[in-house]
Design a protein around this nucleic acid. Structure first.
Lengths: 155, 155
DNA sequence: TCAAATCCCATGGTATCCCATAGAAACCCA
DNA sequence: TGGGTTTCTATGGGATACCATGGGATTTGA
């Protein structure tokens, strides 16, 4: 099943709305979720967004703990208390909430980044920095892997 | 199906009423429960609130004890003694009872926190403190869970 | 009879719906 | 292949509906 791929940057209008990229909307329709499920990423200045597939992922991580227990409550507050269920208007737009604004630093533009089962919402400049860093790390990991697994040349 | 999600802070009026966030009301309608079931949390200064789904969880937690046993009776008294069944007025508001006031410290504002199968009612400042702690715990729990599963530990 | 709870209506601000438009991409047919 | 046409997408803006909130009026219950 093809998920969210590629990345797009769109402009916010005066009302705080932004068009969700059409390819992403098509994936959401297939997924069947009504609206758009959003949750702040715990380790970077981005918001994870998606449908049922993302929601399932989140539910799984809290399933291991007995409901009504202190552990489950803490997890539920961190996960669902930090989530939002946004709606998508008839023209395929979402409104950027204050919560998302604060967590991402978004002002007048939004970058949508496909990550297969979900996509991320970034402030464009912050995303460029993050990607540069990610590429450095990826290169480092790959070269480390090569030298560890085979002393020889890569294929 | 998405349950209670996100968090909202609303003001109490002079009569002690407060609007239940519209998205939460929509979940309650789907749930089919008439009114709002409330029970003081045993481990924090919040009140658990919800409908049939919350009731089911509470019943499940007492199922472990044989009915008619002293343990079961004690549990039932503790649970139902701390419970209230509030009604929701035509404008979607609830009245904060004295019991809730005492347990939460609520004065003029209320924070509603979605936790999927239920939501919690907090005094806003107390919630901020608790959430900071909950996020720390959640991160620790999730990373532990991840490393356990990737190490191939038995379930 | 009085206080408290409930019902009912009013209002300001915001979010949502609906329509319009320009540019780009896709499409079609010669 | 190429030119013309249609479709789709992102964006802008007006009109409308909804929501949180405040306050008066009516009922309930002690």
């Amino acid at each position: 099943m093809a998920g969210f791929v590629s990345h797009f940057t769109n402009r916010l209008d005066a009302k705080g709305r932004v068009s969700i990229p059409a390819p992403f909307r098509a994936v959401l329709v297939r997924d069947g979720f009504e609206g758009l499920y959003c949750i702040a990423s715990s380790h970077c200045a981005a918001v994870d967004a998606g449908g049922n597939e993302l929601l399932d992922q989140i539910n799984k991580s809290s399933d291991g703990f007995a409901k009504l227990s202190p552990d489950h409550d803490a997890l539920a507050i961190a996960l669902f208390g930090a989530s939002e269920n946004l709606r998508i208007d008839g023209d395929g737009r979402m409104t950027i909430s204050d919560t998302i604004r604060e967590h991402t630093g978004i002002t007048d533009q939004v970058t949508f980044v496909g990550m297969n089962y979900k996509f991320q919402i970034w402030e464009p400049e912050k995303f460029r920095e993050f990607r540069a860093e990610a590429q450095r790390r990826a290169l480092a990991m790959l070269s480390e892997q090569r030298s560890a697994s085979s002393q020889g040349e890569p294929a």
